[in-house]
Design a binder for these strands. Structure first.
Length: 531
RNA sequence: GGGCCGUUAGCUCACCUGGCAGAGCUCCGGACUUUUAAUCCGGCGGAGCGGGUUCGAGUCCCGCACGGCCCUCCA
């Protein structure tokens, strides 16, 4: 905590909400709430008390009296307007609306997604207790003890014997009807968005549901969940620019991982035949609606499998995630995804189409292979696909595919057999050594997963790394460096292995129909506010 | 990195060709023992930042900051 540069006499900075440069109105609103809090403190009421003690969840109370739960009884369901069940409850939540009525006040209390009305009556609370309720603000956290009753208008309520402030809100909630609209505020202060928007809360839940579904599927298939380093001495496993950081004690630069791939395969080398990892990876690239510099990747490796098995697994994972979200009520039923106007059917077995076939079809050629670079270059020119001199035929074919084919693949499609030139970690195809057993899953024109039969020949791997090193020397900033530790592992023997990588954020976008990755990441990367 | 668009009260939105910036929510004061976006009466509060044009700028021009969308790159 001690900072030698900090003057010991330094005054603590005033709260930002009360700083001189804060908007006047906000200062006022905060000051009013703070005044209410100070008045409570003067009466001996602590505005931030500890929690604890048995609580009834609002959802459980509602289910007991209005639902089909185990506790629901006919007697409870028959509770009439104006009637008190006499059943004591103790609930807690955030005040999301107040309706004062002089000697009576109603509070709407939200606990998770469930709301329950609290009735605060002079008869029952006394003038002091009611005064305390009257002093509450929207956004405050409270605990209410009382009995379950129905108001005269029939609303299920807690007729309160005691209402306790358990967390004062000094800042106002967003508009209770419209919430926060401005994207910047929603992203920078997601807590405001969450407090105001059911959809925002559902999105956070959806991520948890999808993660649980993916883990369940992998666990059932006897995969072991593992963790590998985020700090890499050599960034590898993907073509991307890494973030650099520095370890002080070792005095070495380290890289935030761009992929866990190489470490996971080292675990397979070591004799763990089925492993997976879910975790953050970091790529030092621009921001866009589809790119956050940190994103969540699922990678899975299975010994003695090939890309065919990994495609089967991929399909099972995506379909299971979609089903789990629907069962959780977080998306519509059925294996259908919507992105904007586009509707996509996720059911059935997804087709597998060789990349070169798709390109040939797109350019109107009967067939296409990688033997004639000049021909591919002419095709790029004819279709206005810009190229670079150093690119080989495989890269040219990939460019054609990415520009002419991928954006138009709407239904789930496994694109297979990518050129070896652009797939430095994938096994060569037995039918064509210039191709690999690699696949990508494309849905609605977007890559969701990338996987392959792993390259297991250490000598071929070394040659591929050397090819990458040459590309790096020639100016390709994203080319992979040679990783001797990985090569040493391969020389110990990597069994035939299938691998897959799945971008969780993009899967969520697809399943929830969100056009921007910032909608599925709670706190997306933004440029810090200047100061 | 390039192009287009946006920024008005804490929040959600108005303000037509330049002429005293309005409303709802929130908040404050008052009334109300059955409301549920409670209602009724009264009130506080504002043009992102910096220049310019003009008698006069929220409005026109330039620059900056931040954001959104598209392109580029990746997953």
């Amino acid at each position: 905590m001690s900072d030698p540069t900090e003057s010991p006499q330094a005054e603590p900075a005033p709260p930002a909400s009360e700083a001189a440069d804060a908007p006047a109105r906000l200062r006022e609103l905060v000051a009013e709430r703070r005044a209410a809090m100070d008045a409570l403190r003067a009466q001996g009421v602590e505005p931030y008390p500890p929690g604890g003690g048995a609580l009834d969840r609002v959802g459980e109370v509602r289910a007991r009296f209005e639902g089909q739960g185990a506790e629901a009884t006919e007697e409870r369901a028959a509770l009439a307007p104006g009637e008190d069940s006499g059943e004591p409850v103790r609930v807690a939540g955030r005040v999301v609306a107040t309706r004062g009525h002089g000697r009576l006040a109603f509070l709407s209390l939200r606990d998770g997604e469930d709301e329950l009305q609290v009735m605060a009556r002079l008869d029952r609370l006394g003038s002091e207790g009611l005064a305390l309720v009257t002093e509450l603000h929207e956004g405050d956290w409270v605990r209410a003890e009382g009995t379950v009753a129905r108001s005269k208008r029939g609303e299920l309520s807690v007729d309160a014997d005691a209402v306790t402030l358990v967390g004062k809100a000094l800042r106002p909630l967003p508009d209770k009807w419209h919430g926060v609209r401005e994207p910047e505020t929603r992203y920078r202060h997601r807590e405001l968005d969450l407090a105001a928007s059911e959809q925002a809360r559902a999105t956070v839940r959806a991520r948890a549901v999808v993660l649980a579904a993916l883990r369940a599927e992998l666990d059932e298939r006897d995969y072991l969940e593992v963790e590998t380093p985020l700090l890499h001495p050599i960034p590898g496993g993907a073509n991307a620019t890494p973030f650099v950081t520095h370890h002080e004690a070792l005095d070495v630069d380290l890289y935030l991982r761009i992929a866990p791939e190489l470490y996971l395969k080292r675990l397979v080398v070591g004799g763990l035949p089925r492993v997976y990892e879910v975790g953050r990876v970091f790529r030092n690239e621009g921001l866009s609606t589809r790119h956050n510099p940190e994103f969540t990747m699922l990678e899975a490796y299975q010994a003695h499998a090939g890309y065919a098995e990994m495609m089967e697994l991929t399909q099972a994972l995506v379909q299971r995630a979609a089903t789990a979200l629907a069962q959780a009520g977080l998306r519509e039923e059925g294996l259908v995804a919507r992105l904007g106007e586009v509707e996509v059917d996720l059911s059935g077995r997804w087709p597998r189409r060789p990349m070169l076939d798709l390109v040939a079809q797109a350019v109107g050629e009967p067939d296409l292979d990688l033997s004639d670079r000049a021909r591919l270059a002419r095709l790029c020119a004819a279709h206005h696909v810009p190229i670079e001199e150093r690119w080989g035929p495989g890269k040219l074919a990939l460019e054609l595919y990415e520009k002419l084919v991928e954006p138009h693949l709407r239904e789930p499609t496994f694109v297979i057999d990518y050129p070896v030139e652009v797939s430095p970690l994938a096994r060569r195809h037995p039918d064509d050594p210039e191709l690999t057993q690699r696949y990508e899953l494309i849905v609605a024109g977007r890559e969701l997963t990338n996987g392959f039969s792993e390259l297991t020949d250490p000598d071929d791997q070394r040659a591929r790394f050397e090819e990458q090193a040459r590309a790096k020397a020639a100016g390709d900033a994203e080319a992979m460096p040679i990783d001797e530790d990985y090569l040493a592992a391969m020389e110990l023997g990597l069994p035939p292995t299938g691998g897959l990588g799945l971008g969780l954020d993009r899967l969520l976008m697809l399943l929830l129909g969100r056009e921007s990755i910032r909608e599925v990441v709670a706190f997306p990367t933004l440029r810090p506010r200047g100061r």
